[in-house]
Amino acid sequence: MMENNYMKNESKITKQDNFQIADQIFQSRLMLGTGRYKNTQEAISSIKASKASIITVAIRRMQNSKNIGKSSLIDVLNWQKLWLLPNTAGCETADEAIRIASLGMEINKKIGQTNNKFIKLEVISDSNYLLPDPLGTLKAAEYLINKGFIVLPYIYPDPILAKQLEDVGCHAIMPLGSPIGSGQGIKNLHNIQIIIENAKVPIIIDAGIGKASEANHAMEIGATAILINTAIAKSSDPNIMAESMKLGVISGRKCYLAGTMQKNSHGKASSPNEGILKVI
C-alpha cells in the first residue's frame, strides 16, 4: 500500500534503506545473476558497478563443491562483502531440485558462509517458455523449509500460489515479470501488484526486466528488490548497464516511498489564482 505521511516518508528516504530476508540484512535492492557474460572479468566488473549485495549462481554450473578453488567466478568474488544465493536452475522436477539444493548448502560452507541456508528454488519442466512448475515448486519448497532452508521460490505471478508459498514458510517470493531472458519487461503487472499487496514477505521481481525504466517501474509499484542477469550480461556495455539498473532501482524505490500524486482527468494549474494581476 502506498504511504502518504510526508514526514514519515522523509525519514525513510534520508536514512539507509536496507531490506531483510530471514535474519540477513542487505543494503542493495538490486540482485545479480552470473550467467551469459562473455568472460569472468566482465561479470566481476558488472557486479562491482551494480553495488549488488546478493549474487545468484546456478549450482549445476558449479557441477559440485569439489570445483571450488579452480578459477571459477565463485572463487574470485569477495564473499565477505557479497551474499551467495545458490539456485536450482536446470531442475525439471521437485525431487531433482531438492537434491541440487543440498549441494548448494555445501557450496555456501566452502566459501565460508556457514550460516547461509538460502536457496533460490527453480523447478522448470517447460523447455519452450521456461515457465516454472507451480506444483513441483510448492512440493520442493515445503520439503526444503522443513529441512531448515531459507527458500526463495521462482514462480509465475499467481497470487494464490504466492500466498500458499508464503504460508508454508518461504521467506521471499520471486514472481517473474516475463519469461527468463526475454527482455519483455513486466507483462503481468496486475497480478504482481496483487502479490505485493497481499504479501508479508519480500517480493523480488525476477526475470524479463530488459531496461532500467522497467526496473524502476517494478520498484515504483512496491517490489522489495529486483533480480537481473541477461539485461546486463547481453548489453553492449554491461558495466554501464549494471550502473543504470542500480540507479533505476534506487529511483523507483524512492518514488514508492515518497508517494505519487493522484492522476486527474483534467489539467490543474500549479500556480494559485489569488494575486493574479488584471490587465486593464
Rank of each mutant, 00 (worst) to 15 (best):
G169H: 05
P202A: 13
L152V: 14
I68M: 07
N78Q: 12
G210P: 10
C91W: 03
N239S: 09
E3V: 12
Q41I: 12
N64R: 04
M174F: 12
G210M: 13
N198H: 10
I44N: 01
L77V: 09
N108I: 08
K187P: 02
A269R: 09
E106K: 14
F19H: 02
A223N: 06
K234A: 12
I13Y: 06
G185V: 03
G35W: 02
I205M: 03
Q184H: 14
P202G: 11
T34E: 00
R29Y: 06
K246Y: 14
E92Y: 00
Q20I: 15
N87C: 06
A242W: 05
R61Q: 09
I47K: 01
I59Y: 07
K8W: 08
G252C: 10
N67D: 02
P132K: 04
R60V: 13
K70W: 06
I205K: 06
V201R: 01
N128T: 11
S236M: 12
T40F: 00
F26T: 11
S251P: 03
K200Q: 09
A207I: 15
A269G: 11
S235C: 15
C170M: 07
L257M: 13
Y256S: 07
D133E: 07
I228C: 07
G259A: 04
L73W: 00
L277S: 08
L73V: 11
Y256N: 14
I124M: 04
L227D: 08
V279S: 10
A242L: 08
G267Y: 15
L138Y: 11
L152K: 08
P86F: 00
I100E: 00
W79A: 07
L73E: 03
P202D: 08
M2L: 10
I276A: 08
L135R: 02
I150A: 05
I150H: 13
Q113I: 15
L121P: 01
A162V: 10
N191V: 06
W79M: 04
L121F: 03
K163T: 12
T88N: 00
Q63L: 11
Q193L: 06
T224V: 10
A89I: 09
N273V: 15
F118E: 01
I173C: 07
V151F: 04
G208K: 06
A162C: 03
P86A: 02
S235I: 11
I160E: 12
S182A: 13
G248P: 10
I74F: 02
A269I: 02
G248N: 09
Q16S: 05
N108D: 09
T34D: 04
E274V: 13
Q184M: 13
K109Y: 03
I54P: 02
N198E: 12
I21H: 04
K109M: 11
I180C: 01
M219H: 05
S45P: 01
S178A: 13
K70Q: 11
L247V: 14
S45H: 10
A22W: 06
Y156R: 04
A22K: 14
Y256G: 08
T230Y: 07
I55W: 05
I155Q: 03
Q184R: 14
D95N: 10
I276G: 05
T34A: 02
P86H: 05
N39F: 03
K163L: 12
I221M: 11
K48S: 14
T88I: 08
